[in-house]
Design a protein around this nucleic acid. Sequence first.
DNA 1: GCGGAATGTCAACGCTGCTGACATAAACTG
DNA 2: CAGTTTATGTCAGCAGCGTTGACATTCCGC
Lengths: 162, 162
Amino acid sequence: MGEGAMRGDSLLFLTDAQLRRGIEAMFFAYRGFTADPDRILGQYGYGRAHHRAIHFVNRWPGTTVNNLLAILGVTKQSLNRVLRTLIADGLVESHVGSRDRRERHLHLTEAGRALEAELSEAQAARMRDAFRRAGPEAVTGFREVLEAMMDEDLKRLFEGTA
Amino acid sequence: MGEGAMRGDSLLFLTDAQLRRGIEAMFFAYRGFTADPDRILGQYGYGRAHHRAIHFVNRWPGTTVNNLLAILGVTKQSLNRVLRTLIADGLVESHVGSRDRRERHLHLTEAGRALEAELSEAQAARMRDAFRRAGPEAVTGFREVLEAMMDEDLKRLFEGTA
DNA sequence: GCGGAATGTCAACGCTGCTGACATAAACTG
DNA sequence: CAGTTTATGTCAGCAGCGTTGACATTCCGC
């Protein structure tokens, strides 16, 4: 049994059963979280990797491939395959950097912004519904736990996106 | 702007910015959530799919392949590949059902339980740390939001695991 | 100008989704 | 109770997206 269990009463939320419950909640909730965008992406022949690229290019227009790698936590080769198709399909534009010509600066095209809006609206709708049903205090707790669960370097990135 | 934004003040947590923040928190936190098990699995030559199978076979010893499919939300062909390797490696046992001989009842072997313990302890450690730092009220909010984010059928499954 | 570091591209491989085809066992039907 | 349909599980092959390896281009320190 976990060493945090049943010590007095204020730590009941740290019992093994509660932790397992939290783990399974995370698993099932993440499925719901990605379900709507996945459906939309499927219609366009894209996957989750395309969604992530589109999301963060929209968040930081003009970002470089290297920046994106740090955020997404994949290899450049993996990201490159995704970007290649998005560029070929006219959703993303890649411009050689003027200061450093090794860099590629990325922007969404009009079509890219349209798909981004469609995806993020679907995902936000579910989040909005969940937030509304749970209430503001639950939302605060939700975000506190999620932040505490991130790796330190990811947390810094997350806070950098504020 | 989202239609829920800036209506009075009690709905500030539903602004587009807050929702986007929630979406990105979910993304980064899930990375942290899976990071430790992924490292361990890599050492054994397994992936996340193996982890999920092991986790739920441990939770419901004797469950059938069909039951597992409903929980995991993948096709039976996909699950079968994973189970085949786990069985071949001696982590899972498959027994033909006595009542219905089409069914296969699944159990972890001693070695399977050992790996399960290693994986779930790593994941629970991170969850425990996050819960402890966020506090009991945050944990309640965390679970409320996650449950509200699940698909209805997944939520029923989740509650069934209580 | 040259050697090394940084950035990005192309190729090939592995895990894990997927659909399709099939074997076996159970259940239904006349 | 024989024949068909349904349920369960297995085997094969394809696609998405991770990975490592090899390489071209550009920048920068010497």
